[in-house]
């Protein structure tokens, strides 16, 4: 079957497409419009990168994990993937924290990696407001560390960020391109790094550090608009059962129907194929303490080096779990949450 048709039928038509953009930016045919991925020409290639990079196409994940993490020697925890350590962190710079999601750890780390030359460009998602006031997130390529802060925060939508990565890789200008993405995007990037299509690897070696974002789900493109405008959106720990939009509190029951269908089939909460993954802190000390902090899973040696550098440069503040027991409990909590997402996805 033509690869475009195969991808369209198996992923787009079935509603499991996340709009990550992995199929885009390489040819003129795959496009995205208002959060929806579509193809506007039935290309007659039997094989193509689009099909191989798509995170929703079947793949042997164990083999992929072995290929990308096997040599690293890290522990593999079934619930959350490769693991070197768990940290509670936040950006030391209060200016970053002001606009960032949770503690601004991701913004601080990407900024640092760019400044220190660990990466020479970063593919980020910009949750910038469109002219009409609605959130209109899009991927962007950032090379100036000062621009990273413009991409802070989350709109809980999934823009086709990886289209920008693919374009940057094809141009072959930057040799260490960092990527920040949700688990679906990180899985696509992992597939790209594994060079599944022999004829064309799209300069996959130019992919640098991969920064994963914890993700429960993303919203439909127009979902947020239905809930009303907001500059800052956050989802509280599950016991609160609510989403905060600026000063407004929205019952989660009003939000869940707007969840992107494809996200209901996702079984990865912590972006297991990243070098490090960042999410909102969920320690045993409770929301009042955790608010404004991140938890961070370091997976690879590369990821560990960046964290060590961040500690050395004072870019991140580290908060102690208290004692070993508390740290184990926090890890246990993530594992439970991650396993719960996986269970729900598989039950559907």
């Amino acid at each position: 079957m033509y690869c475009i048709l195969e991808l369209e039928r198996k992923v787009v038509d079935t509603g499991i497409c996340t709009n990550c953009g992995a199929c885009q930016g390489m040819c003129p045919y795959w496009k995205s419009f208002e959060g929806r991925t579509f193809v506007d020409y039935d290309c007659d290639r039997a094989e193509g990168r689009c099909k191989y990079f798509c995170p929703r196409m079947p793949a042997d994940l164990d083999a992929l994990r072995e290929k990308l993490f096997g040599a690293d020697g890290c522990e593999i925890i079934p619930e959350i993937g490769p693991f070197r350590g768990l940290y509670l962190t936040r950006a030391a710079d209060p200016e970053i924290r002001k606009n960032a999601q949770h503690g601004g750890t991701m913004t601080a780390l990407v900024e640092l990696a760019l400044k220190e030359g660990l990466i020479d460009a970063a593919v980020l998602s910009k949750a910038a407001a469109a002219a009409d006031g609605t959130l209109d997130p899009a991927g962007c390529l950032v090379t100036d560390p000062a621009e990273v802060r413009n991409c802070s925060g989350s709109s809980f939508q999934i823009p086709p960020t990886l289209a920008v990565l693919n374009e940057a890789l094809a141009a072959d200008e930057y040799k260490q391109i960092g990527v920040v993405g949700t688990p679906c995007k990180v899985l696509a990037v992992a597939k790209m790094k594994a060079k599944p299509y022999e004829d064309n690897d799209n300069h996959a070696d130019n992919i640098g550090l991969v920064f994963g974002l914890f993700c429960g789900w993303g919203l439909d493109w127009n979902g947020l608009a239905e809930l009303g405008d907001a500059a800052h959106v956050d989802i509280l720990p599950s016991k609160y059962h609510r989403m905060d939009m600026d000063d407004r509190q929205v019952d989660l029951d009003d939000v869940l129907p707007l969840v992107r269908n494809a996200c209901k089939y996702c079984d990865d909460m912590t972006a297991e194929f990243a070098d490090l993954s960042v999410g909102g802190a969920r320690s045993s000390e409770g929301w009042d303490v955790d608010q404004g902090w991140n938890q961070l899973i370091v997976r690879t040696e590369k990821g560990q080096k960046l964290i060590d550098l961040a500690r050395e440069k004072g870019v991140l503040e580290f908060r102690s779990f208290g004692d070993e027991e508390a740290e184990a409990a926090a890890l246990e909590k993530i594992m439970r949450a991650s396993a719960s997402k996986r269970e729900k996805a598989l039950k559907l």
């Binding site: 003129p28 290309c43 064309n200």
Partner: peptide, 12 residues
């Protein structure tokens, strides 16, 4: 041929 489009102009 790296266009990734197999000759978008001449073919499509």
């Amino acid at each position: 041929s790296n266009c990734g489009c197999d000759g978008y102009c001449s073919r499509v």
